[in-house]
Design a protein around this nucleic acid. Structure first.
Lengths: 219, 219
DNA sequence: CGACCAATTGAATTGATTCAAGGTCCGTGG
DNA sequence: CCACGGACCTTGAATCAATTCAATTGGTCG
């Protein structure tokens, strides 16, 4: 949907491979070695209509998975960070877009032994399904504040950080992920700040001051 | 969550097996024969915390998949009808409830050959994922009217009916699936009726008068 | 420095909810 | 057979959370 070129990068430019979960390690083992691609911000990794098949491992950076309504409204079904796998598709063609959020290194995974790959893929597909199902609750039943609290807690858990959470995506992306407008995202962050639950160290970095307080808002 | 007993029923009481999709047929082939259970309305098929593993094939009736927030708000992540498979779970324990909506026959599927079963399961798990992702767009970005139109079109497609759609679940269930209140569901159905897009033959049966008109509202 | 894009903040609007009556349907018991 | 009770559904009026519209501020890059 945006700029298209995805040029190769010297592997050295990509940070040391993130530690993988057992499921990801198994999948990588069952895949044959493929290109490691680097994308700058807002490039298309695959588009709606592209042939599905290979999976993708995020090595560095962040990826957003995007669906558009016919009239252009946007829903980001998920973000993926280093160590996570995306690209699952039921049919022959992708129904969504995968785009880099920031500078992003992506490893393509193609099946080596068909059966082994499939079995590893199942575990990860089920994780994606679980994620999606939890997000359905968020979109269907949580208030704006609760959505943001959930999102921040989720990011904290996945980034395994020290109380700081990176927000590499812009407010608009967060809004389209949480089913809100970017103005509301901005306002909610302000109220969380006013309640001393978070601190906005930078526009793209949040410090979690009170994880328990945030959890109470979570749902 | 509700009444617990699930008694066995004579197989004859259950209508002739619905024609299965190729994926479902393959899964049934790779499963060892297991109990066919009958549930009356609003019984629990599995609960949050129950051990995951087996899959379930809906033979007759309808099933709802439910998640609850800590304070009791409810999101129905999916409905399943005859010929559909549910019960996918990433971890060892279910994170949601499966409940019968009306009188429902369910076939339990347990792996016979581990690998064959897993490969068949992947295709169906991906279908569930695709469904969930489409529902994310509905919850995140569609208006109440659009949600209802989408829901009715989806049911039409899945029930393969002649312009009539059964609504075996009550308004409250529809609301908790579409992220609305039951009053809003009622009101939206009224406005669709006033626009001559549908007719409420009975409270649980909708006639689609103008599929194209509905599709225009779809998104 | 100036231009541009993203983020914040404020004020007015609105779609959906909440609260509150009724109405309909159906099974049960007199 | 019909009256009653309860569960579900419909409809109306008032409210509210989030959006829309509109500036303004902040940050980055040539």
């Amino acid at each position: 949907m945006l700029i298209e070129s995805a040029f190769r990068y010297p592997e050295a430019a990509i940070a040391a491979t993130a530690p993988h979960s057992p499921e990801v390690a198994a999948l990588v083992g069952a895949a044959r070695p493929c290109a490691l691609s680097y994308y700058r911000a807002n490039e298309v990794i695959y588009a709606e209509g592209d042939a599905a098949g290979p999976l993708y491992l995020v090595v560095t950076g962040a990826v957003r998975i995007v669906r558009l309504t016919p009239d252009g409204r946007r829903q980001i079904s998920a973000f993926h960070f280093a160590g996570e796998v995306f690209g699952f598709e039921a049919g022959a063609e992708h129904q969504d877009y995968a785009e880099s959020v920031d500078g992003t290194g992506v490893q393509v995974l193609r099946p080596q032994s068909a059966s082994g790959f499939g079995n590893c893929a199942l575990a990860l597909a089920l994780k994606s399904l679980e994620r999606a199902n939890r997000h359905l609750v968020l979109l269907g039943r949580l208030s704006a504040t609760e959505r943001m609290a959930s999102f921040l807690i989720d990011l904290t858990d996945r980034q395994g950080a020290d109380g700081f959470v990176g927000l590499p995506m812009q407010r608009n992306d967060i809004a389209d992920h949480l089913g809100l407008t970017f103005e509301t995202v901005s306002r909610v962050l302000r109220t969380l700040k006013d309640k001393h639950l978070i601190r906005l160290a930078r526009v793209d970095q949040v410090e979690i001051l009170d994880p328990d307080g945030l959890s109470l808002l979570n749902a």
